[in-house]
Design a protein around this nucleic acid. Structure first.
Length: 549
RNA sequence: GACCCUAUCAUCUAGCGGUUAGGAUACGGCCCUCUCAAGGCCGGUACACGGGUUCAAAUCCCGUUAGGGUCGCCA
């Protein structure tokens, strides 16, 4: 390719590859230290899968005291959304995932290997594309999108492998004169990579996660520079991950089939390719089939779904760590008090080769454990923070009743392994504690009576009155329960559950029925945590008032 | 259609030639118990199918089937 042509393609002054290399010195890191990255497109929504991939990459790097950086892949100017980096950075930060270098929430760079936004790296990509043109490893292509469509249709119709290769690569063998003519005529063009691959040959790819794969060599002359002068993903990946010193590229397995291309690109540019690891996307069941979670169709694919529901951040992290290495749950059992990030991720054994179903049942179970390990104060703070964003009215109530709510949240908590586990997500709490507030307790007497059937209204009234008369909030739990037993005995209810079970007909009911009367009258529900605690927290006045059935 | 990958309980998985196929979640039962939750104990459920190789196969090989992914100037 003549200098004249190259100057027509790149009339602007460009740095030389050597100058660029000098600006990106090799990272001086000890053996075994890993450099990874997360490279999302700023399209405005954060997929759970992005967080999952970021978590894995972050762990892989930071477990070796390596570098984890964030790069904005915004070469598709059509899909770019303003403010998207803020969403990405906040989403990750919320889960404790922080980059050492990259783009911050305002789109500003930090770190020595920038710019970390691809659209700001145009000259760098073009410099390397220019060098490829000079070496005859790339060429301009003047085929219009419509021409390519027609070509693809013909290929489909004649059952040939689609793509721009071999005899279908029309612009590959254009003469310098033809190129010059097109360029001078101002015909739009892209730059394609001149592939020397043979589709009939296989190359062995060593994938860190999937293992060895035999993939066909790439023989397609892919576009490396688009009509707008920006590179395609493939080319930007090679340039950036080389210059930025990425040692391990861990990404979604939609990239598997382009690994041969990527390796080709590294070879053509004279660089060493990073190690690759590919993870399968998170799936869901749809009409009996698995398919990947999609931002378009599945609300739960968007990370904000978990914010709205108030899933504890640690619950999602622990769930994801569990998907990464199923041994996480054993580790957690042995290390109940350690931060989740202390878990040694073994990325040679990343599970989920085929794509795991995102399992909310399991997530919920993990979430219960996570919440059970928190103190009442921590739960309060977390619920308040969540409610402030998503339930302002509830947030006001929480703020006005801090001590009271903490006491409520503390019922049967912090007793080691026996802690209650009824909170999965912050969204559950308002309902859980509603009966502690008179204005939220809207169960009518009729509804209460229905819950208490077959006891009659006079039975209920009798029990309630007798208990109200004797109730002392200062009583200890034994005394409190002795009162209930006494009332039971007096009215023909069994106090010995065994005796009752052996001969239920001999009694009107059991002591649990008496307790149930009190429970329903005081809380409006027949299922609650420890009634004794509830009464103490409510206070004698409120208890008596509610017992006045 | 072509190519690549994957295939163990309902779900996530352990397993890497010899195991009563293990764990977790879910489910069921019992115990505990003022209800519920929690906890403890117990239980059922799996190697997709068909061929090989081998003394021996969930493990290795080959097919079949099923699922996933990729075949763009999107990433």
């Amino acid at each position: 390719m003549t200098p004249e042509i190259i100057n027509l393609i790149f009339p602007n002054p460009l740095p030389t590859p050597a100058e660029i290399e000098a600006r990106y010195p090799r990272r001086n890191l000890p053996e075994g230290v890993r450099v990874t990255r997360i490279a999302p497109s700023p399209t405005g929504k954060m997929h759970v899968g992005n967080v999952y991939t970021a978590l894995l990459n972050e762990r892989i790097a930071h477990q070796t005291n390596g570098v984890f950086f964030l790069r904005a892949e915004d070469t598709d100017q059509e899909r770019k959304v303003d403010g998207a980096m803020k969403i990405i950075v906040n989403s990750l930060g919320r889960y404790g995932i922080f980059a050492d270098e990259g783009v911050d929430k305002d789109g500003k760079d930090f770190g020595a290997y920038g710019p970390y936004t691809q659209s700001e790296r145009r000259d760098i990509y073009q410099a390397y594309i220019k060098s490829l043109l000079e070496k005859g490893l790339a060429y301009p292509c003047f085929c219009a999108a419509e021409d390519l469509d027609i070509m693809r249709k013909i290929q489909e119709k004649t059952s040939v492998r689609p793509g721009y290769y071999g005899k279908y690569a029309k612009c590959r063998n254009l003469t310098d004169e033809q190129i010059l003519e097109n360029l001078k005529a101002g015909k739009p063009f892209v730059i394609r990579f001149k592939s020397s691959g043979d589709n009939n040959k296989r190359m062995i790819i060593k994938d860190l996660i999937k293992g060895d794969m035999a993939l066909p060599e790439n023989d397609i002359d892919v576009v490396i520079m688009k009509g707008d002068g920006l590179p395609t993903y493939h080319f930007a990946h090679a340039v950036d991950d080389h210059l930025m010193g990425t040692t391990h590229v861990i990404r979604g397995d939609e990239w598997v089939s382009s690994i041969p291309l990527h390796i080709q690109l590294f070879v053509a540019l004279g660089w060493k390719a990073p190690k690759y690891g590919h993870i399968a996307p998170l799936q869901k069941i749809d009409n009996g089939n698995k398919r990947k979670l999609s931002k378009r169709h599945d609300p739960e694919a968007c990370i904000t779904y978990f914010w709205e529901k108030g899933y504890p951040e640690n619950a999602l992290i622990e769930y994801m760590l569990n998907l990464i290495n199923a041994s996480f749950e054993d580790w957690r059992r042995n290390n109940p008090d350690k931060p989740a990030f202390d878990f040694p991720v073994n990325f040679n054994k990343v599970s989920n080769a085929a794509g795991a179903l995102f399992d909310f049942v399991k997530l919920n179970s993990i979430a219960k454990d996570v919440v059970a390990r928190m103190s009442a104060e921590q739960v309060y703070d977390a619920v308040l923070a969540w409610a402030t964003d998503y339930r302002p009215t509830f947030a006001e109530r929480l703020k006005a009743n801090r001590e009271y709510v903490i006491r409520i949240l503390d019922i049967e908590r912090n007793i080691g392994k026996k802690s209650r586990k009824d909170i999965v997500k912050w969204d559950d709490v308002e309902q859980d504690i509603a009966y502690f507030f008179d204005d939220l307790l809207t169960v009518s007497p009729a509804e209460k009576a229905a819950l208490l059937a077959p006891l009659t209204e006079s039975d209920i009234r009798l029990i309630a009155d007798e208990f109200a008369a004797i109730y002392q909030p200062a009583d200890d739990k034994e005394t409190w329960f002795a009162h209930i037993k006494a009332i039971a005995e007096k009215h023909g209810f069994a106090t010995d559950m065994k005796a009752y079970k052996e001969n239920p007909a001999a009694f009107k009911g059991s002591v649990s029925d008496v307790a149930k009367v009190l429970r329903v009258l005081v809380t409006g529900r027949d299922k609650t945590p420890d009634l004794y605690e509830i009464m103490r927290i409510l206070g004698a006045d409120k208890v008596r008032a509610r017992l006045a059935f």
